[in-house]
């Protein structure tokens, strides 16, 4: 087993400082939204979690592609780890969205296209683990897992394009060709907290995926499969 890289330790410390830091920023620095009230503050972590989830599924597909061309196990570990971490981020996005929806829409869940497709995305990647667990050799797990990760990621834009054709009640953060002077409908302080959250969640994603793929390597070594 290789020693824990210094960069990873640095990333750990950064996340330990920045995640609570972002929370403080959101709770005390941003103004309270005029119409929705304090519950609007869910938004910062909600969008960041959704972003981190999407990014990790993209990473999983790219890592799967690299695995298929190089056949090096470490890329499969990366792909697997990204999907696992992405699933958790996706779940955070859905649950935090529900917390916001309860007072704003007066219901925990609506069958809105945006919500439904996000939930379907979670199901797609849950099936990834069912697929892996029903394969016998690490080689077939990696190979078929990579194919599935790539095909799944290819349908994600399809899914998200399909909801553009629907009318959705979900708020749109970045309006395409908005009539106002800014595409973002936020005050400067909100915008700052928003971008800080996005950045912090991206760091957290890298940190968790890195840890998880080191764990995958340990598991493989333990089973006598890895290098």
């Amino acid at each position: 087993m290789t020693k824990k890289p210094k960069l990873l330790s640095l990333l750990d410390i950064l996340c330990l400082i920045l995640v609570p830091g972002a929370l403080v920023l959101i709770l005390f620095f941003t103004p309270i939204e005029r119409v929705m009230g304090p519950v609007q503050k869910v938004f910062y972590f909600h969008v960041s979690a959704a972003w981190a989830g999407m990014l990790s599924f993209l990473i999983a597909a790219v890592a799967g592609g690299v695995y298929l061309s190089t056949r090096k196990q470490k890329w499969d570990w990366l792909s697997l780890s990204s999907i696992e971490v992405g699933l958790v981020f996706g779940l955070i996005a859905i649950l935090s969205g529900m917390i916001w929806a309860q007072p704003i829409w007066n219901t925990w869940w609506v069958w809105d296209p945006r919500l439904t497709t996000t939930a379907i995305m979670e199901l797609i990647y849950l099936a990834y683990f069912i697929l892996r667990s029903s394969l016998n050799t690490p080689e077939s797990r990696a190979r078929l897992g990579a194919v599935y990760a790539i095909v799944s990621a290819a349908t994600v834009p399809l899914t998200f394009f399909s909801i553009r054709l629907f009318r959705t009640i979900h708020p749109v953060v970045i309006a395409a060709g908005g009539s106002g002077e800014s595409a973002f409908n936020m005050t400067p302080r909100m915008l700052l907290a928003f971008f800080v959250s996005l950045f912090v969640f991206t760091l957290l994603l890298i940190d968790l995926v890195w840890h998880r793929s080191r764990l995958a390597r340990l598991q493989a070594v333990n089973r006598g499969e890895g290098v």
């Binding site: 099936a127 697929l131 095909v151």
Partner: peptide, 12 residues
Amino acid sequence: LLPVLLYPLALP
């Protein structure tokens, strides 16, 4: 396994 893999991906 097929329905579990196919239905969510074919949803769009």
